[in-house]
């Protein structure tokens, strides 16, 4: 028998409630996830936990881009993370987990697996 991952989507908020280039924090199966909508309408979800400070705050960072790649800067010590991959662009050895996100019937959903 093969183990099969079940995709479990959790509703976050209405897509229209997301302010472009600003994040929100959501609780996905007990885990804090930062959800962003970039200026071009794309959704990104990554762990809300800033690995440098151990504090759940990435959703409160400033969204921008670095060399064209969408990013968020941690509000604590300002390290920059790529939204698409979770990679820290200031320290290649660090990254944060990303989560699948989608819009269904105008509602943003994030998958915990």
């Amino acid at each position: 028998m093969t183990a099969q991952l079940q995709r479990h989507w959790t509703a976050v908020c209405r897509y229209d409630d997301l302010v472009p280039e600003r994040g929100v924090a959501a609780l996905i199966d007990g885990v804090a996830v930062a959800v962003f909508r970039t200026h071009d309408g794309v959704l990104h979800a990554l762990s809300n936990m800033d690995p440098f400070s151990g504090v759940s705050v990435l959703s409160r960072g400033i969204v921008g881009d670095r060399e064209g790649r969408p990013t968020v800067a941690s509000p604590i010590y300002k390290q920059v993370f790529e939204l698409a991959t979770g990679a820290c662009l200031d320290d290649p050895s660090i990254s944060v987990r990303t989560f699948p996100a989608r819009v269904l019937n105008g509602v943003v959903e994030v998958c915990s697996v």
């Binding site: 099969q4 991952l5 079940q6 690995p51 400070s53 151990g54 660090i94």
Partner: peptide, 19 residues
């Protein structure tokens, strides 16, 4: 207490496994 300036190990989410 948390150690400042160091990456903190965060417990991962629980995986739901269906047999």
């Amino acid at each position: 207490h948390r150690r400042p300036g160091q990456p903190v190990l965060i417990a991962g989410p629980t995986l739901t496994v269906v047999r």
